[in-house]
Structure formats: C-alpha cells, structure tokens
Simulated assay, not measured.
Amino acid sequence: MSANAMREMSASEARSKFSEVFDAAYHGNPVVVRKHSRTVAIISMELLQSLAELEAKRDSEKARKALREFLKEGGTPMSQLKKELGFD
C-alpha cells in the first residue's frame, strides 16, 4: 500500500459514498475520514489483524528484553513493590 493509495474525505462524503469507502478499505486502501477536528481511518480486517499481530510481537519482544534484564540485574521483590504501593 502506497501513501498515495490512501484517500481522505469528509464524514458526509464518506457517508454518501459508503460503498466506495468499503470497497477501497476492503481492497487494502485505507480511507481517512475527517469530521471537524476528529479523524478516523477505515481499514480492512486483514490490515487490522496484521497491525494487532505486529503490536503483539513488539510487546512480546519488549517483555523478553525486560525479563532478560531482570534475570541479569535482579529486581524488586513483589512483596516490596506491594508495600511501596500500599497493597500490603
């Protein structure tokens, strides 16, 4: 998907061209819709799932890195954290 494949339109235009917006998003061309100062992107489920998987992978990599650091450098015991946060 190239940046020029992404369409932008107002909410009223998107409403009147819903079928066209749906088809564009379904075929991998996101549509940016603006209403006053609010903006949304209409994308396909396939793209949404890909983005969710990418985010999960990134989060998993961050968690593995944090675990490696914890195992290497140690950390604060849960009992101490609870006490510091007032959960004891």
Rank of each mutant, 00 (worst) to 15 (best):
V40Y: 10
L71M: 12
H36M: 13
S16G: 05
Y26T: 04
P77K: 10
A63C: 10
K17N: 11
A56W: 12
V33H: 06
M1F: 09
A24Y: 09
A41V: 08
L54R: 15
E20K: 07
K62W: 08
G74H: 01
F70A: 14
A41K: 13
S37R: 15
A63E: 11
A56V: 05
R58L: 11
L47S: 02
I42N: 06
V32E: 02
S60G: 15
K82T: 03
S50P: 01
V40P: 06
F87D: 00
L67F: 15
V40N: 06
R7L: 06
T39C: 13
G86E: 00
A24S: 11
S79W: 13
M6G: 00
P77S: 10
K82I: 02
A14Q: 03
M78T: 09
T76L: 14
R7I: 05
M9P: 02
F70E: 07
G74F: 05
H27I: 00
S19C: 04
A24F: 06
D23H: 03
Y26H: 09
T76Y: 06
V40M: 07
V40G: 00
D59P: 01
L67Q: 13
E69N: 10
I43Q: 09
E13I: 13
A3C: 06
L81T: 02
S37F: 11
K65T: 12
M1C: 04
E13C: 09
K17E: 08
N4D: 10
H36Q: 12
I43H: 06
R58I: 14
Y26G: 09
E8Y: 01
L67S: 09
K62H: 15
S2T: 07
S37C: 06
L51C: 07
R64I: 12
K62E: 15
A63I: 14
A11D: 04
P30D: 01
K72G: 07
S10Q: 10
G75K: 08
S44T: 04
E84W: 08
L85M: 10
K62T: 11
L85W: 08
M1N: 05
A63K: 15
S79A: 15
R68M: 11
K57H: 14
A14N: 03
V21D: 01
R64Q: 12
V40K: 04
T76Q: 11
L47H: 03
A52C: 09
V21A: 03
K35H: 14
G86L: 04
E13A: 12
E20V: 07
A56H: 12
K72P: 08
M6R: 14
R58C: 12
V21E: 00
Q80E: 14
L85A: 04
L51M: 13
H36P: 01
F87S: 00
A11M: 05
A56T: 05
A11N: 02
A14S: 04
V40I: 14
E46W: 01
S12I: 10
F22Q: 00
R15S: 10
A24N: 05
D88I: 01
